[in-house]
C-alpha cells in the first residue's frame, strides 16, 4: 500500500525529516508516536502533498504509484486522506458545498457521474450518523467557529464521506471528549476494511485502546528510531521517551 524510503524534507533551511523509512501493508494499522516537534505532522503533510515542505531526498510509493509526483488533490483522489492536527477554518465556504465538490471530484477521477443531489444528501446523513455529527454544523462555513472537538469530528466525517484507502490521523484524539473519542474511534473502525490502512499519530494510549495498532513506531528527530508491536504503547505511556533517547545516545 505505502512504501516510504529514506525520506528527507525541509522547510526553508531547516531539515525536519532526516530519512524516514516505513512500509504499510493493506489492512494494517500503524501508530506513530514521538515527542513534540519530532516531525510527525511534517511527515503527514509531506505525504498529503503540502508544498511548503521541500522533499530533498527519498521516495514514496502508494499502490505502486510515485506519490511525490502527484499534486495534493490527486493524492487525495488516489485515496490518501489526512485528518489535520489543526483543521483549517475557511470562512465563506459552505460545508455542504465543499463536501459535494470534494465527493464529485473524487468520482470524476474514477470516471463516475456526479452524485445526484438526493443521493448526496442521503450519503451525508448516513455518514453524519456514523460519527454523530451535529447536522447544524453543515450549514456553517468549513470549520468556522467549530469547537476543537467539532473540528476533529468533522475530519473523520469527511474521511467517511471520501472513503480513502489510506487514512493518516494526526492527533485526532486531541480535543475530543470521552464520549466523542469512543464514537469517533468506532467510526474509524467501522470504516476499516481489509483493503484499507490507517496511520494513527497520537501521544496517548487512550486512542490506541480503541484503534488497535498492528505496529508502533517512534519518530524522533526526523527518523523512525524504534518499531515494535502494540506493547510498546504501554511502555511509552509509563516511561516516556527518555529511555529511547538514551538508547540512541549509547549507539
Amino acid at each position: 500500500m505505502l512504501e516510504i524510503k529514506d525520506l528527507h524534507a525541509k522547510v526553508g533551511d531547516k531539515e525536519i525529516l532526516k530519512g524516514v523509512n516505513l512500509v504499510v501493508k493493506p489492512g494494517e494499522v500503524h501508530a506513530i508516536m514521538g515527542p513534540n516537534g519530532a516531525g510527525k505532522s511534517t511527515l503527514s503533510s509531506v505525504l498529503a502533498g503540502r508544498e511548503v515542505f521541500d522533499v530533498t531526498k527519498g521516495e514514496v510509493h502508494f499502490q505502486g504509484k510515485d506519490l511525490l509526483a502527484l499534486p495534493a488533490e490527486d493524492r487525495a483522489r488516489e485515496g490518501v486522506f489526512m485528518s489535520f492536527q489543526y483543521p483549517v477554518e475557511i470562512p465563506g465556504v459552505n460545508t455542504v458545498n465543499f463536501l459535494k465538490t470534494a465527493v464529485n471530484e473524487h468520482r470524476k477521477y474514477k470516471g463516475l457521474e456526479p452524485l445526484a443531489a438526493g443521493a448526496f444528501l442521503k450519503l451525508m446523513r448516513e455518514k453524519q450518523a456514523l460519527v454523530e455529527m451535529d447536522a447544524k454544523l453543515m450549514n456553517r462555513s468549513v470549520n468556522e467557529g467549530f469547537s476543537g472537538g467539532e473540528k476533529k469530528k468533522n475530519e473523520i466525517f469527511q474521511m467517511a464521506m471520501l472513503e480513502p484507502k489510506l487514512s493518516i490521523l494526526d492527533e485526532t484524539d486531541s480535543g475530543l471528549d470521552i464520549d466523542a473519542l469512543r464514537i469517533v474511534s468506532q467510526g474509524v473502525n467501522t470504516l476499516k476494511t481489509p483493503e484499507t490502512s490507517t496511520i494513527v499519530i497520537t501521544h496517548y494510549q487512550r486512542l490506541l485502546d480503541y484503534i488497535v495498532p498492528d505496529v508502533v513506531h517512534v519518530l524522533y528527530d526526523g527518523r523512525i528510531v524504534k518499531t515494535a508491536g502494540r506493547e510498546l504503547v504501554a511502555e511509552l505511556e509509563e516511561k516516556g521517551y527518555d529511555w529511547i533517547k538514551k538508547e540512541l545516545e549509547e549507539h
Binding site: 503540502r50 488533490e73 487525495a76 468549513v142
Partner: peptide
C-alpha cells in the same frame, strides 16, 4: 485553506 481543499481532492 487552499491546501486543505486540495487535500480533500478538490483541484
Amino acid at each position: 485553506a487552499l491546501f486543505y481543499l486540495r487535500s480533500r481532492g478538490i483541484g
